[in-house]
Nucleic acid binder design. Structure first.
Lengths: 256, 256
DNA sequence: GGCGAGTTTGTAGGATCGTAACAACAGAAT
DNA sequence: ATTCTGTTGTTACGATCCTACAAACTCGCC
């Protein structure tokens, strides 16, 4: 069995099939169609198991059964199988979240949150960043040294918010970042005071209004961890801290 | 626990979560946020299990962890959770079918198929009907007495094919069906020769060109089973059989 | 009988479920 | 300071369920 095939089987398993089901389905697409013995001969699925496995695949709408002797099986087309699985997924998703939505706590408004939350992994930090940017009412500050931390979705959100009249400032030591985001209508860029040239760590800072903040660090191995707080006193304190620490003598002098 | 909640948990399980994961996720949306003990108090998940379950939910991107004592958990928004699950699904789907596509048997052309296949369940018969209609090159005959067997997708497909210049004929004893499909541009309707007024069985007939056919029957309990054959000699024989049997004395007389 | 097709039953392994014990810690009572 | 008490977080373990896998068994046919 090739690596590709193993990966495909794993993927099918994560889609809810058993490994036998995945193997039989793949085998039938290899063969076009076939009887139980044909399927068993090209897979490590015991022939006696093919019957029940095929039956469950029929229930899922992934193959069709020819009632004859011997029983022959025929997979549905790839497009049809994909549609069937997708429809099933969407149906389950809707049913699951419909209930969650009906019971979710409404009253816990963000402004009563006084906590700092942690988010691990790039993707979810991205999501959280977009979330914070979208929640801002007046002012946004976005900072990162790493161009790869500026996803197209973040870029689009920044552009949208600027278009809505918010004050959007991008701060970066990195020229690529400044050029890319500075090109957006209504976005102003700035270079941070370089009072720590030797700073190894990198990550991002998002400040939305005066009370929402996200800070992340990228680890040596490339993983990203962020802390964030929305509408909390804690956030305000952090923001003031950052603003104070970036108010270096140089920038003070420059501002006079 | 309400029925709705059980169903939602089942749905989450079919989406790949364990029942504990589903319960904790739902509970945290109820609570807004909370510690392990809070979650345990509103579910039947043991407190000692909440920690590991929450960890796996964090890995899935469905909740965030506040590192403090006690550890507090916060679910991501419903929209974000849905997006996360959908992205995961699409990723797996792509990986799975990419491989299937790469190994699928190309040479088995439909016209060498000599078999009759069976399809169970309304939905999949619908799919197969649309499939046959789409494959036709010249001529389509569609017949059913039951209006509910005419889905909007079938209606749309008939309209499209007629627009492409195919000869599309709809045969039905039922006036609703004739009116509805006859209203489509390029679709002609007909009443079948009623030589069997006492016929209890119902279902549908699809004939595409002279060699693709689908026949279905609706059972007493409302379930539908279809046999179909594409590009086979068998199909041609069946089609001739049907055409012969519908050529009643009356219609013969009328045609003279 | 010999053979292949299809059904049925049984077993081993793994993951989840559910319970319980445990150490670490904080606050209250002594 | 010491003890007591309640909570938190970790870990271990048996019960249960499902999948994977194997082996019997029935049936029809040559």
């Amino acid at each position: 069995m090739t690596d590709d095939e193993s990966e495909a089987i794993d993927a099918f398993e994560r889609l809810g099939l058993t490994s036998y089901e995945a193997k039989v389905f793949i085998a039938l697409h290899r063969l076009g169609s076939g009887a139980a013995r044909d399927v068993a001969s090209v897979t490590d699925v015991p022939r006696s198991q093919v019957y029940s496995v095929a039956e469950s695949l029929e229930d899922r709408g992934l193959l069709e059964v020819q009632q004859s002797s011997p029983i022959r099986y025929r997979p549905v087309s790839i497009d049809e199988a994909e549609d069937t699985l997708r429809n099933r997924f969407e149906r389950e998703r809707e049913r699951a979240f419909e209930f969650v939505d009906s019971v979710k706590e409404e009253s816990t408004t963000e402004e009563t949150q006084e906590d700092i939350w942690t988010v691990r992994s790039r993707d979810r930090v991205d999501d959280r960043v977009v979330d914070l940017l979208s929640q801002a009412d007046e002012e946004i500050a976005f900072g990162t040294r790493l161009p790869k931390l500026v996803t197209s979705e973040i870029e689009r959100t920044l552009e949208d918010r600027a278009a809505e009249g918010l004050t959007v400032t991008v701060i970066s030591k990195n020229e690529t970042v400044r050029d890319r985001l500075g090109a957006l209508e209504g976005v102003t860029t700035a270079v941070p005071p370089t009072h720590r040239d030797d700073d190894q760590r990198s990550g991002r800072i998002v400040i939305a209004d005066d009370d929402n903040i996200l800070l992340s660090v990228v680890d040596d191995d490339g993983s990203e961890t962020a802390i964030w707080s929305a509408g909390s006193l804690f956030a305000s304190v952090l923001i003031q801290l950052i603003e104070a620490s970036t108010a270096t003598p140089e920038s003070d002098a420059a501002s006079r």
